[in-house]
Design a protein around this nucleic acid. Structure first.
Lengths: 194, 194
DNA sequence: GGGTTTTATTCAACACGGTTGAATAATGCG
DNA sequence: CGCATTATTCAACCGTGTTGAATAAAACCC
């Protein structure tokens, strides 16, 4: 940490990876604004300037150390296979399975900063919505997929990003029970023509 | 902001109100982290120290200058009156009416910081959910209200807080069409017992 | 293998952000 | 009037992210 000699160190210690690991832990525990560059540097046993050198900026450090937090393509692949009747349940399970496991309940609110939001947005709009529309097929497929993305986004928002108690407290089975009707309607009910 | 004399000024200019007004505009335009205390002070034509004096801290300034941003009780009162069949539409209209008017589309993402999130959370869980449950009545009322809050939270999240294009682009009428089925199902379909 | 370039690191300093304490002038109360 | 209170500016402090110079090891080249 302190008073290490100047210049390049002996051997090839993968300092970059150490920094990224420390950053992942701290961002995860204290969120983006709550994590200082100096704290990451200290945890990694390194000078603060090194992180600007390796990652360009604090924002770059964040982007590059948290890449696959809310985007797990395999979970979606499994959900988008099978009969249409069970689609809603499979989608709900894939959401709870991914987020409940990945983020301990205490720290869920910590992952709520610009980069994560942007990643989530791109994922919902660019990936999830299109794949659901493709799977549904038929008339109004894109509008029904949009509605479904709205419902799933609501679950993610009210359960993980800004957890409100009555939804945070549900078990995964309860999530299926409570959100099932709405998601099924979003997926399969024809949006009425006015 | 220039060279004003030290000590108390003549008359009784309501500087506190000027500061609050400037703060409201800037927070609204650039969000909490993007708004510096010094910028607010400059916009109000006062010394930065004054805002610590009057509001205690930047956080205090924020709390006291933005109180009713996403909580307009009268809109909810109107929605929770009338027949149950039209409830979903009235709720959706009250959301789009409130947010679409209040926040110009460009700056919607700016209102996304801890205090706003907390206010929104408390509102969804403490106010909206309870009132909807009370209005619905009958068995499973609280669970159906929870589902409805999830759907409405999804709309707010995917349209205003972290707007994804396909939902942000909808007209208020489209919102009714697209979200209507899901919200109606959430409100009125019995959560199945497994 | 020696000389040069490239890379990885520390150090010191900068600019900016929020906050605080002292100084100062007007107001309000007796 | 005299005195406490209040509203204001100023200068300074401390913590933040970032940058440029110095330095030492590694990698490359002929």
């Amino acid at each position: 940490m302190l008073n290490k000699t100047r210049g390049r160190p002996r051997g090839n210690p993968d300092t970059r990876a150490r920094i990224a690991a420390a950053a992942r832990d701290l961002f995860h525990a204290h969120g983006y604004p709550g994590t200082t560059v100096r704290a990451v540097a200290a945890a990694a046993g390194v000078d603060p300037a090194l992180i600007s050198y390796h990652f360009g900026s604090k924002q770059g450090l964040f982007s590059q150390s948290l890449n696959l937090l809310c985007v797990d393509p395999t979970a979606l692949d499994q959900a988008l296979r099978g009969d249409q009747a069970g689609l809603a349940d499979r989608l709900l399970d894939s959401v709870t399975g991914l987020w409940d496991a990945g983020v301990p309940a205490e720290n869920r609110m910590a992952v709520r900063d610009d980069e994560t939001m942007r990643a989530l947005r791109d994922y919902l709009d660019g990936e999830l919505r299109l794949r659901i529309a493709e799977f549904l097929g038929g008339p109004d497929a894109t509008e029904r997929a949009t509605a479904a993305v709205g419902v799933l986004g609501g679950l993610i928002f009210t359960r993980y990003l800004n957890p409100i108690r009555s939804i945070d407290a549900l078990s995964p089975a309860d999530v299926r029970r409570v959100f099932g009707p709405a998601l099924r309607a979003a997926l399969h009910a024809r949006p009425r023509r006015p």
